[in-house]
């Protein structure tokens, strides 16, 4: 049996001295789509940030392995080069940096890390135009500073565009559905689905079942109080929708 793509084992994380994750374990195989669902404050965002390597998250116990390697020892950019991608719940605005420059810098950083020649401006523009077309993004957006003045939908589409360019082995989508109307949600979901492949996986972190109607998961996990309290197939999300978090968590306890 091949090693799982992502293996989180007994993860304990504190933020400002408060324990947020309390022994979380989760294994994602190649090609699988997992959903982690949980109420507010259950540790969903902490999980995504710890995987991506944001500062301020103190791992006190446990491990995170990606393709067998210790992720926690890697810098955020190294995790990205290795094939991890976090689609942010609140994508950052970066005034003064054009979106196209940002995308090209990121894309070429990946090429460089993999020992491939960097793409020049023209070649990159051709590539990025293919991707924007598929995602229904106007070229005009590429000229604007990263996420500055973007609507909620545009910001999320920009996240998916980055994902489409970087083609990660594992995409972590942190509440990608928040702040999206149904049309924007469909576009985003289509973008994610277009990337589905036998060797690519996704971890969809969400509060609501809604997104999972469009990105159908293979496995669903309920996160409560820093731990996975229940796991199941896609029907678990539907059960959750019917019963609500409180009942489901009580049953699991």
């Amino acid at each position: 049996m091949t090693a799982p793509l992502l293996e989180i084992d007994n993860l304990h994380v504190t933020v400002d001295g408060r324990e947020i994750l309390r022994g979380l374990s989760l294994t994602i195989g190649a090609g699988e789509v997992h959903a982690v669902m949980g109420p507010n404050g259950s540790g969903k965002s902490t999980l995504s940030y710890v995987i991506a390597g944001r500062e301020g998250y103190n791992v006190t116990e446990g491990s995170v392995r990606f393709r067998g390697e210790d992720v926690l020892e890697m810098e955020p950019e190294e995790r990205s080069h290795a094939g991890l991608f976090l689609a942010f719940q609140y994508p950052l605005e970066i005034p003064g940096v054009g979106t196209n420059t940002f995308l090209r810098t990121a894309y070429n950083a990946h090429r460089k890390a993999h020992g491939e020649p960097e793409l020049d401006g023209m070649a990159f523009l051709k590539l990025v135009r293919e991707k924007t077309k598929a995602l229904g993004i106007r070229d005009e957006m590429l000229k604007r500073p990263v996420n500055v003045g973007f609507s909620g939908g545009e910001k999320k589409r920009n996240e998916i565009l980055q994902m489409a360019l970087l083609e990660p082995a594992l995409a972590v989508l942190d509440e990608t559905d928040s702040g999206l109307d149904i049309d924007a949600l469909k576009v985003v979901a289509e973008g994610v689905n277009a990337l589905r492949a036998p060797d690519r996986s996704a971890l969809v972190i969400t509060h609501y079942q809604r997104l999972l109607s469009y990105i159908v998961p293979d496995h669903v996990h309920i996160l409560a109080d820093g731990r996975i309290v229940r796991s199941g197939g896609k029907e678990l999300a539907i059960e959750l929708e019917a019963k609500g978090y409180q009942d489901l968590i009580r049953e699991a306890a």
Partner: peptide, 22 residues
């Protein structure tokens, strides 16, 4: 912003530089 850039694979020094230039 620095973390955002790094999470996209831009090395720390290049990310800092980009932000200063911006």
């Amino acid at each position: 912003a620095l973390f955002y850039l790094r999470s996209r694979g831009v090395p720390e020094t290049a990310a800092r530089r980009l932000l200063v230039q911006a």
